[in-house]
């Protein structure tokens, strides 16, 4: 639907709401199909300026209680939907537990963008190349959703359903992300491939989360890929390949192969199918090695 214009001034008649509670936010969203949620705005405002969207209402969630804090819960972390990448980076405990997730969030944009960009915005923008999403999926993160019919928790990997589309219903918003307790001898890593060194969009992204036993043998593994399919991909057989190994060369080459064959990319201006498949394997191994040495570093 097209935005209404004041004929002479050409000003878009658009409402801006800053609710103080989740209930109010839900109410604002539920009565208007064309409302958009504003978290950091680093995706939303760009799209607005480019004329890709013309919302009738913008609902800013930053003033809602709890949206900007990181709290401990069941040994894990609850991260409010408006917590910026920079704030995550400054939380030492969070970094120690989930360095891969924090680094993935920290890769988004530049210093300026980091002051605003959130992992919830990254997730709900539903871009195939979103950097924090594979790391969150590897970490078994869940999203808490509030809506007209109450609150529910959903696995992060079930939120994006197609490029630009999420499984959220009208009136719903994500209020927080929950990262579970990091087991002893567990850690994670995220790597992305970009043609430059920053300010670029992932051609392949890979998150790996591992748990080892005290001897350094893998007992749990989750691997997720970004930018190589319409939505984030879980490399389902990664656990089977890695569990019971100490990341020896055979395990790594099997992992690379699994990752390359799961990848289902397209040929476009950012890379060819063959390139993205190859690099999926390479990055998965590199990320797995980092996660492994991090996890091992915590072995007593």
């Amino acid at each position: 639907m097209k935005a209404r214009l004041h004929p002479n001034e050409g000003v878009i008649a658009m409402q801006f709401q800053s609710p103080l509670s989740v209930e109010d936010a839900v109410a604002f969203l539920a009565d208007d199909q064309n409302a958009r949620i504003l978290s950091g705005g680093t995706d939303l405002l760009v799209r607005l300026r480019l004329g890709h969207i013309a919302p009738s209402k913008i609902v800013d969630i930053k003033k809602i209680e709890g949206m900007r804090s990181i709290t401990r819960e069941d040994g894990g972390f609850r991260i409010g939907a408006a917590v910026s990448g920079a704030e995550m980076n400054e939380n030492h405990d969070l970094y120690l537990a989930w360095p891969g997730v924090v680094e993935a969030a920290g890769l988004i944009g530049s210093t300026q963008i980091q002051g605003r960009a959130t992992i919830v915005g990254n997730l709900c923008n539903a871009g195939p190349a979103a950097d924090s999403v594979p790391a969150l999926v590897a970490a078994s993160a869940t999203a808490r959703i509030a809506g007209p019919s109450g609150v529910r928790d959903v696995l992060v990997q079930d939120i994006p359903i197609a490029p630009g589309q999420t499984s959220l219903k009208i009136g719903e918003l994500v209020t927080s992300i929950f990262l579970p307790a990091q087991p002893v001898n567990g850690s994670d890593a995220y790597l992305r491939f970009i043609p430059r060194t920053e300010m670029d969009i992932a051609v392949v992204g890979c998150g790996v989360s591992l748990k080892l036993d005290s001897a350094g043998t893998v007992v749990q593994a989750r691997v997720a890929l970004g930018a190589v399919a319409p939505t984030v991909l879980l490399v389902e057989n990664a656990a089977e390949i890695l569990i019971g190994t100490q990341l020896d060369d055979d395990a790594l080459s099997a992992l690379a192969e699994a990752s390359s064959s799961v990848a289902n990319p397209i040929d476009d201006k950012r890379g060819t199918i063959a390139f993205r498949k190859d690099v999926s394997g390479v990055l998965t191994c590199r990320a797995a090695k980092i996660a492994y040495s991090r996890a091992k570093g915590t072995v007593k």
Binding site: P195, R196, T197, E198, M199, D200, I201, D268, K269, R270
Partner: peptide, 24 residues
Amino acid sequence: YIYGKDGTLQNAGFLDYRIPVASD
């Protein structure tokens, strides 16, 4: 300059027209 089959420019912006950044 990257063109599509229809002859339209595919990367008319600094995201996909990659000039070096300082850290490169």
